[in-house]
Amino acid sequence: MKTKSSASAVVLQPGEGARRWFFGGGVQTWKATEEDTAGAFLLFEDEMALNKVTPLHTHPDSDETLYILAGEILMNMDGTEHRVAAGGVVIAPRGVPHAFKVLQEGTRMLCLHTPGGAQAFYFGASEPLSLGENSGAVDFDRIRASGQLNGGIEILGAPPFPEP
Rank of each mutant, 00 (worst) to 15 (best):
G95K: 03
E72T: 13
A86P: 15
K52V: 13
M77F: 12
I73D: 01
D61G: 14
M77E: 11
V89Y: 13
G87S: 00
A70I: 03
R94L: 04
Y67M: 09
L69T: 04
E81F: 10
E72L: 06
N76F: 01
S62E: 07
G79F: 03
G88K: 07
H59P: 12
Y67L: 13
H82E: 08
A70T: 14
V90F: 04
E64F: 01
V84F: 07
Y67A: 09
I73L: 04
T65S: 08
D63P: 04
L66M: 13
M77G: 11
E81D: 15
H59G: 02
K52A: 13
E81M: 06
T65M: 01
E81K: 15
A92C: 08
D63E: 00
S62H: 04
D61P: 13
G95D: 05
Y67N: 12
L56K: 07
L74T: 09
G88A: 04
I91K: 11
L69I: 14
V53I: 12
R83E: 11
V53K: 07
G79I: 00
G71S: 00
V53L: 00
G87D: 02
L74D: 06
L69H: 10
E64A: 01
R94S: 10
G71H: 02
H82P: 05
P93H: 12
A86Y: 03
S62C: 12
T58G: 06
A85L: 07
